[in-house]
């Protein structure tokens, strides 16, 4: 796993000392052991002006997404989770070792990303980055409609609370451009002008 990213999730932009490093290693091992990664995906066709998922008759009220998907004709929606055991273990550590809970939480978040990356590589010919509702101006309400469409509760055990939060907590839903023209690069990222990682000299993509 990418330990540099785990540190970033804890807002650490420098090298970890030996004891923190060991703690991260222990957590990685434990997360791998108890996480039950599950994912589900589905393809949808898009129409533009306004950006709409045709099969669901769902208008995506987002300038950012409309911009990145302007030359994209179909998308894949992925929903995935590490399962409820991870949530329970984070809580477990919060009671007896808060420092470990923080590391465990960060490792879990990263593990979810990496598992989802793997899944995406295997199942999707991605033309864009993975956009999750809540980032930029992509409305959070999309989570609900898309989770229903993917039947995430039945297929992977992911539901939304009435306030719109995922349970299990370590779950996510992303929309990826699948057909059309676009490229994965820092310049095509909606956070290009405000990226805290780039300020620290860290990059997510090789290309600008």
């Amino acid at each position: 796993m990418n330990k540099e990213m785990i540190l970033r999730y804890m807002h650490c932009f420098q090298k970890a000392d030996d004891s923190l490093n060991k703690q991260i290693d222990r957590c990685i091992e434990e997360v791998r052991q108890i996480a039950q990664f599950k994912a589900v995906h589905q393809a949808f066709t898009l129409s533009h002006d306004p950006l709409t998922i045709k099969e669901l008759d769902l208008a995506c009220d987002s300038t950012d997404l409309a911009c990145y998907f302007q030359d994209i004709s179909s998308c894949i929606v992925i929903a995935c989770t590490l399962g409820i055991s991870i949530d329970r273990r984070i809580k477990y550590y919060e009671h007896i070792d808060m420092a470990k809970a923080v590391v465990f939480d960060a490792v879990s978040s990263r593990y979810l990303e990496e598992c989802c990356d793997e899944y995406e590589k295997k199942h999707v010919n991605s033309k864009t980055m993975r956009f999750a509702p809540g980032y930029g101006d992509i409305p959070l309400t999309l989570n609900k409609t898309l989770s229903n469409a993917l039947r995430t509760y039945q297929t992977i055990g992911v539901s939304l609370t009435s306030a719109g939060l995922f349970t299990p907590m370590k779950s996510m839903l992303g929309i990826i451009g699948a057909k059309g023209n676009a490229k994965k690069s820092c310049m095509s990222c909606m956070r290009q002008s405000s990226c805290v990682f780039r300020k620290e000299g860290i990059r997510c993509y090789e290309n600008d």
């Binding site: 804890m10 807002h11 970890a16 420092a99 923080v102």
Partner: peptide, 14 residues
């Protein structure tokens, strides 16, 4: 001052 990280702060606090 970013000399130590959140887990270390918490560990010291505990």
């Amino acid at each position: 001052k970013n000399k130590i990280f959140l887990p270390q702060l918490i560990q010291s606090a505990e």
